[in-house]
Design a binder for these strands. Structure first.
Lengths: 208, 208
DNA sequence: CATATTATATAGACCGGTTGTCATATTTGC
DNA sequence: GCAAATATGACAACCGGTCTATATAATATG
C-alpha cells in the first residue's frame, strides 16, 4: 500500500495552487494529477479542500523560507542575497514555462472567501520573509525602522517582479531590476553606516 | 426599458474581479449584484464571461491610467507623484475594507486558462503604467535604460505593496514604503542629473 | 393611428464540473 | 487470523457557464 499518498497530494496541490490560485485549482485536478482516488483525500484531510490548501501552502512557504535564509547567510552582502534570490525565482519561472511564481500571492488575491486559517498562513509567510530581510539588514548596520521599511519594500518589489514577469512571459525586466535592487539595498546600508550620529531616526528614507 | 444594463454589468464585474480574481468571480455573483437577469448577459456580451471580463478589466485599467497620468503631470517631482499614487491606492484599499487592489494582478495570477485576449489586456495595462513612469523619469533627466529599469521596479514595488497590505489588512507598511519610494526615485534622478558625462550607460543601476 | 419589424430584455432549461459523503474493499501490523 | 489503518469509486447536492425560446419596448411603415 502506498503510504506516501498524503505527501503526493500535498506536493501536487502546492504546485497547482501556485499556478492557478485557490479557485482555479479544483480537487479533481489535484486528484487526477496525483493519481489518487477521491475518497482518500477526505481520509487524509478531513477538513476538505481548505485543510489541504493550508498544508500545501505551508510546505511551499517552508521551502522558500529555507532557501532565502540560506542565501542571506551565505552571501557577501544582503543586496547580493536579494539579487540571487530574484535570479533563482526567475529561473524557476522560466523553467516552469511561467507557471510557478510566488506561492501565496495567488491565494491572497483570489481567495477572499477562503478560510481564515489560509489567510493566516499567507500572513505568516510574509512575516517570515520580511523578518529575514529585516534581520539581515539590521545586522548589516541599518536602524530597526530603516531595516523594517526596506525589508517590506524589498519583499514588495520581488512580489511585483514575479507578477510582471508572469504577465509578459519574460524575465528580462525582472533580471534588470534585480541588479538595481542589489545596488539599492547595499547603498542604503552603506549610507546609514556612514552617518551613525545623525539625530533624527524618524521617517528618513533608508535609500538615499 | 433600462438601457444602462450593460454598464451596470461592467462596473459590477470590474469590482468583483478586482476582489476575487477570474475564477473567484462567477456570473451568478455578477448578475445578483448588478440585479440583472441571466439571459441579458449573452445579449450584451455574446462572447460570454471572457468578453465581459475583457470589457470590465479595460474599464478599470483606463481609470487607473488616467489617474496616474494626471498625478505625474501635476506633481513637482516624479517621486512625489509615485508617493501620491500609492497613498491614493492605500486609501482605496482601506475604504473598501481591503477588497479593491490592483485590477489586473488577480487575473494574471489565477487566470492561467483565461482567454489570450484577457492576458493581452493585462499586459497592455503594464505597458501603459510602466510607460508613463518611464516617460516621466526620462523627462526628469534619466537615461532611457535607467528610466526603463526604474519604471519597472517602481511598478513592481507598488504591486507588491498592494498585495502585502491586502494580506495584512493594514496599509501602514505600505505608507512607510511609499515615503521611501519617493525618496528613492527622486534620488536616482538627482544622481544621474549630476554625472551627465559619465562614459558607461550600460547596466549601471539607476539608484546609487 | 394601426400594424409590422426590429432591437432589446428576460426566464429558465441544460449539461458539465465541483465538493463532500458513504459503504465497501484492501492492506498492514501484530 | 484479527483489528486497525488506508484505499476505492460511486453517488448526491449543488453551482458554473451557455444556450434557446419568448416577452417587451422602440421604431418604421402604410
Amino acid at each position: 500500500m502506498r503510504s506516501n499518498t498524503r505527501e503526493w497530494m500535498i506536493s501536487t496541490a502546492a504546485r497547482l495552487l501556485q499556478q492557478r490560485g485557490y479557485h482555479g485549482t479544483s480537487l479533481n485536478d489535484i486528484l487526477t494529477e496525483s493519481r489518487a482516488p477521491r475518497g482518500s483525500l477526505y481520509f487524509h484531510f478531513p477538513g476538505g479542500k481548505d485543510e489541504l490548501v493550508v498544508e500545501a501552502t505551508r510546505a511551499t512557504i517552508g521551502q522558500t523560507t529555507s532557501l532565502l535564509a540560506d542565501l542571506l547567510a551565505r552571501a557577501e552582502t544582503p543586496g547580493r542575497a536579494v539579487r540571487e534570490f530574484v535570479e533563482g525565482a526567475a529561473e524557476m519561472l522560466r523553467r516552469s514555462n511561467f507557471a510557478l511564481g510566488c506561492p501565496v500571492a495567488p491565494i491572497i488575491l483570489d481567495g477572499a472567501d477562503a478560510s481564515e486559517e489560509i489567510k493566516q498562513v499567507c500572513r505568516e509567510a510574509f512575516d517570515a520573509w520580511i523578518g529575514l530581510y529585516r534581520k539581515a539588514f539590521a545586522e548589516a548596520g541599518l536602524s530597526p525602522e530603516g531595516a523594517e521599511t526596506l525589508a517590506c519594500s524589498v519583499e514588495a518589489t520581488i512580489e511585483g517582479l514575479l507578477l510582471i514577469a508572469k504577465a509578459y512571459r519574460d524575465v528580462t525586466p525582472m533580471l534588470r531590476s534585480a541588479v538595481e535592487l542589489e545596488a539599492s539595498v547595499d547603498a542604503a546600508i552603506a549610507a546609514q553606516a556612514g552617518d551613525r550620529a545623525e539625530p533624527d531616526g524618524a521617517a528618513r528614507p533608508a535609500q538615499p
